[in-house]
Computed example of a mutant assay.
Amino acid sequence: MTDSSRRPGGFFLLRPENPAEIGPETVINRATTPWSYDKLQVELDVFWERDPLIARDWVIATVDLERSFQSAGITGYRLRPVAITLSENYVELDGGPIPDFVWLDVTGKPRLDDIAWTTGGHLDLIVSPKFLDVLEAGGASHFDAFLLPD
């Protein structure tokens, strides 16, 4: 693990790998720009090395990782419930148990909070060095992080 005192300053663009899709019980609010979710159901296709964070234009984390975010004082999200289902592919190829997940409904402001969506038409996550430290300490490994220019 690299602590934030040894990371370059500034914020990072975070791109997690996405082994999941939204499920049919998801409720999308198309009245907002960009669209938002009123209810989230996620169907896991694989669970790579039990990675504790999965994201697309939504973010879910294991309960244990979210507790670490709380302990570290991570800002920029509100906690919401998520329904998790398993794809046929998951059941056939993996079939192992999964931990409890929560939805990190990202509400942060870019470069002010520890996690936020970029502004503009394409949704990417912007995270602080502190967020990356907690994420790595929690066992996440299936993501890319790129230092953003100041």
Rank of each mutant, 00 (worst) to 15 (best):
S4Y: 14
R7P: 09
G9P: 15
G10H: 07
E21D: 03
P24A: 10
T26I: 04
I28V: 15
N29G: 02
N29R: 13
R30P: 13
T33E: 10
W35Y: 11
W35F: 15
S36C: 07
Y37I: 02
K39G: 04
K39C: 10
L40Q: 03
L40H: 04
E43N: 03
E43I: 10
D45C: 06
D57H: 09
D57A: 00
W58R: 10
V59K: 05
A61W: 06
R67D: 14
S68K: 14
F69H: 10
F69C: 03
Q70E: 15
A72I: 09
V82N: 00
V82W: 01
A83F: 00
I84Y: 06
E88V: 12
E92F: 10
D94S: 04
G96T: 12
P97N: 14
D100V: 10
F101I: 03
D105W: 08
D105P: 05
D105C: 14
V106W: 05
T107N: 02
T107L: 03
G108W: 02
L112F: 10
I115E: 01
G121Y: 08
G121T: 11
H122K: 15
S128K: 12
K130E: 12
F131P: 07
D133I: 07
V134D: 01
E136I: 08
A140H: 07
F143V: 06
